[in-house]
Simulated scan of single mutants.
Amino acid sequence: MGQEMNKERVVVAMSGGVDSSLTAALLLDQGYDVVGITMRLSDENRDIAPDGRSCCSLSSVDDARHVADVLGVPHYVMDFTKSFEHAVIDYFFDEYLRGRTPNPCIACNRYIKFEGLLKKARELGASYIATGHYACIDRSEEDVYRLRKGLDLEKDQSYVLYHLNQKTLPHVLFPLGGFSKSETRRMAETYHLPVAHKAESQEICFVPRDDYKAYLLEKRPECARPGEIVDRTGNVLGMHEGVAFYTIGQRRGLGIAAPQPLYVTALDAVKNQVVVGGADEVHAREFIASDLTWTMWNGLDQERSVQAKIRYGKREAAARIIPCGPESIRVCFAEPQRAVTPGQSVVFYERDVVLGGGIIDEVID
């Protein structure tokens, strides 16, 4: 009995997928007192995803509960719908209406899955929270916690975790960081987990049928405000259906006949204009980023050479980051980058260590 009392408690965010299920199984094997929590985030997509590919679907809750039963650990469903609506869904709409492209998965990780869940975990007497993200955490000789890329670089998810810092990193576990996806599938079979071969979840869990345009039209009909499509000198080339329906770098669906391919290069919500240009105009070398967070520091106090990544799935590229105020920095790439998109996150690395990141605010022409 004494040994049981000495176990450290960990709350595992169980979405009903193979990664979070294996996370719970591994931690249980390592001697932790595991408590599974499924976060109820939104009702938008709960009954439209019968295959369970949405983490908000009813079948995913049932899958998580089933896995917890197999492992013999307690499982709870907790309601985070109000905080999710404010921090993720409202933000999602607001950014599109501002002519920016949001990243709801990063907002969810930052404010719900870590900040919100960590608070709940402490109420349950847990020392840690754990998720199935493919990333690693270690501790330097200087006693500094570091967020690092996952071993499988194709699956690495450190980009969406750049908000973690010295207050949160000591209380977070990523058991899958040292494995590949194929290895986790095999291990899930070994543990006889009923979700071992379940398909990956969709990217935006709360958008029905993954159709963000239809969702915007339903929830924010004011976004369907037609306007002009112009070139960078202001010549009108056509008409658009609403700035929110376009993204930087987009080529198809512009409805413009031109001698050369045209791409969306900027979105101006104030003027209600979509700006287009040639292939060379969709590249940029510099931009301003704000809403900064740093994994190991309180702030950036001098210019620094880094590797920077401007979207999930894109490789990092050499850049310099330069403080230009207490809450913003200038990011200067060595080579022009395609489709630098306001609203998206930029994340900074030094080799495989995440230094921090921020939100792209303004592209410098």
Rank of each mutant, 00 (worst) to 15 (best):
A244T: 03
H240G: 09
G227C: 13
Y212I: 09
A214F: 02
A224P: 03
E241F: 11
G234R: 10
Q260T: 07
I229W: 11
L193Y: 09
R251A: 10
L267Q: 14
Q157T: 14
V144G: 01
A224L: 07
T190P: 00
P194F: 04
A214W: 00
A257Y: 10
P194H: 02
L164C: 05
H163A: 10
L169E: 12
F179K: 05
V264P: 04
T233M: 15
L169V: 10
Q202P: 06
M187K: 06
Q157A: 12
R220P: 11
K149Q: 10
H283G: 02
E189F: 05
Y191C: 11
K181G: 09
L161Q: 06
E241M: 13
L153C: 12
F179S: 02
E200N: 14
Y246I: 09
L217V: 07
V264C: 04
Q166S: 11
A289P: 08
C205E: 04
H283L: 14
L147V: 01
P194C: 05
S182E: 13
G278C: 00
E203R: 06
L237G: 08
R225C: 14
A279H: 03
F245K: 11
E222K: 14
E286V: 02
Q260V: 12
H192P: 00
S180I: 05
R185N: 01
G277Q: 13
Y215G: 00
E189D: 13
L254I: 04
D152S: 11
H192W: 06
K149V: 05
I256P: 06
L193F: 07
Q157C: 14
R251D: 05
F287A: 07
L173K: 09
M239L: 10
T190M: 09
P259E: 06
L147W: 02
E286P: 00
P259Y: 05
D210V: 03
G234F: 10
E183D: 12
K167T: 15
G253L: 06
H240K: 13
L193R: 09
D280T: 12
K219R: 15
K155F: 13
N272Y: 01
Q273C: 14
A279D: 03
A244L: 02
K198C: 06
R285Y: 01
Y162F: 10
V230W: 07
Q273P: 11
M239D: 06
V207M: 00
H283Q: 08
G150D: 00
E286H: 01
V282I: 08
E218P: 03
L216Y: 01
G278W: 00
G277P: 09
M187Q: 12
E222F: 08
T233I: 15
G255C: 05
P261R: 06
T168C: 13
T265Y: 08
E218I: 08
T168M: 14
D280V: 05
E222Y: 13
Q166Y: 13
G177D: 10
H197W: 00
D152V: 07
Y191M: 12
S201W: 02
E222I: 14
C205D: 03
L151T: 02
A284C: 01
V144E: 07
N165W: 04
V276M: 01
R252C: 02
P221V: 14
R285E: 06
Q250P: 01
R148W: 00
L161I: 05
A199S: 13
G178F: 06
